[in-house]
Amino acid sequence: MRIKIRHETHYVLEQAARRAMQYLRLTPRNDRNQRVGNWSISGPEKLTQWLDGFGNVVHFASEHTDHNDLKIVVEGEVETKETNGVLPLDDGLPPGMFMRPTPLIKCDEVLGAFSDELKGIIEKDGELSFLHALMAALADEVTYESGQSTVACSATEVFERKKGVCQDFAHLFIAGCHRQNIPTRYVSGYITNGAGDPASHAWAESYVSGLGWVSFDPANRQCATESYVRLAVAYDYATAAPIIGVRTGGQGEQMNVNVQVDQVQVQS
């Protein structure tokens, strides 16, 4: 599927900032399921591209002069392939490292017990079935609702409130998997049609031996399809964040985001 993306993030400040610096994880990975074409990032005064330890493409963006607003625009096309939600283990990242309980995905007893209820499935039908069951159980248990959580909310906090958005679902799923010792990681990206606002999305991938990385999107109760575009993989939101920044000075920030993700109709 050919997917055309335009993602605009616009920050407006009441009081001008003197300098600003950001890491942008806004370039799709060159993974087995997708090929990136004509990708561009514009807006910041200066941009430098590099690769982080997870193999994500990152841009270091900086503003060196006083500014009241900052616009970051990424656009381009990605050609995706249907892989039935499975990616082979060839990105150089040992699955074992995705067992680290970072603050956002740390499991507590309540969430642990929720996961444990399903663990019988592992012995009976295997890990894959457990993962599907966990995805379904989380989708039943937690309601998709924006405005109920922030990006700093941990899985356990979200589980108390039972309300959250895609990154919360991903965190919950990762924590539930870690409880059963299944390496699971966070994926950020885009989706052409899914729950909530179109577009910027997050889901999870679990490592199933013999198969590879299998993606689960509990917010949409499905495995990733060719409608999904992968931007970054990491432990959690904090390590995969599309935009993370610091600035000197400036106050009263407002952020407007506009994302368009459309399937391109191929004309033959």
Binding site: M97, M99, A234
Partner: peptide, 10 residues
């Protein structure tokens, strides 16, 4: 791999 001192950044 799960040690906090292990830095994936490296």
């Amino acid at each position: 791999l799960t040690n906090e001192a292990f830095r994936p950044e490296m």
